[in-house]
Amino acid sequence: MDKILNGSTLYDVLSAIVPGYLFLLWCRIVFLPKEFSVTGLDELSLGIIIFVASYLVGLLLKFFLERLFSSVLRNQFSLMQKACKKSEIDEEEKKRILAVTDECLFKRNYYIHYYIAVNYNANSSIGTIEMQIAFIRSMMAVILLYIIAVPKIASYIDLNCNYSLGLFICLLLVEILITLLIFSLQVKVHKLVWEDSFYAEENKKNNKRVYYEKEFIAGGIVRITIVL
């Protein structure tokens, strides 16, 4: 239970609260005058309101961005194939997987391997990396907003023209780098899926404890039967 709660807390902080707060800060800088301040609330109450608002806004960002970029930054056919080629699994198994050229069938096969990898490998880091991807995806949108609002931000914090240009370049560079990073992490997830599912099967062959049966059916797809 403690492990679950700790993982949930990490996920909330990275992928919801931080981007949500930065988005609210962006709204404060862009839409409200510099002299604006909240009166009538003590610091504790204001802190709680900001915390809750940041969390809710962060969840909304995550929800919309996941659907907006799901076909671009997640589960791309080409990335799955690339990860399979790079994976450290048996060459015969690799050839069998890559022999499926139909995208729908290939993805269905991948999802089955994902299920095996996540459920039968307690030490897998797939979940952790997916948390990182969710966080970076939210930050991509927030940083883009900051790039667009550089003149307003520079005016708000009294930056001169040279520093404003430097801020713009730095933010743009960070945006490019994290975009590349998210593709790299996604390939790593796919690679772990192929490897973890393969070695779960190897453990089964060696009579180690597993809970599924796998059989091949038409089109190179596998069918999973849970063993109770």
Score class of each variant (00 low, 15 high):
I178P: 02
I178V: 04
I178T: 04
T179L: 07
L180D: 06
L181T: 00
L181A: 00
L181H: 06
L181W: 00
I182G: 00
F183Q: 06
F183K: 05
S184T: 09
S184A: 15
L185T: 00
L185M: 11
L185N: 07
Q186D: 15
V187S: 07
V187N: 07
K188V: 04
K188N: 13
V189A: 12
V189E: 13
V189K: 03
H190N: 13
H190I: 06
K191A: 10
K191V: 09
K191T: 07
L192V: 07
L192P: 08
L192W: 14
V193E: 01
W194R: 08
W194N: 05
W194C: 08
W194V: 04
W194K: 08
D196P: 15
D196N: 07
D196H: 11
S197T: 03
S197E: 02
S197M: 02
S197Q: 03
S197L: 09
F198L: 12
F198V: 11
Y199H: 04
Y199N: 02
A200C: 10
A200H: 01
A200Q: 02
A200P: 15
A200R: 02
A200K: 00
A200I: 02
E202K: 04
N203T: 00
N203S: 09
N203W: 09
K204Q: 13
K204P: 10
N207G: 11
R209M: 12
R209C: 14
V210S: 07
V210T: 08
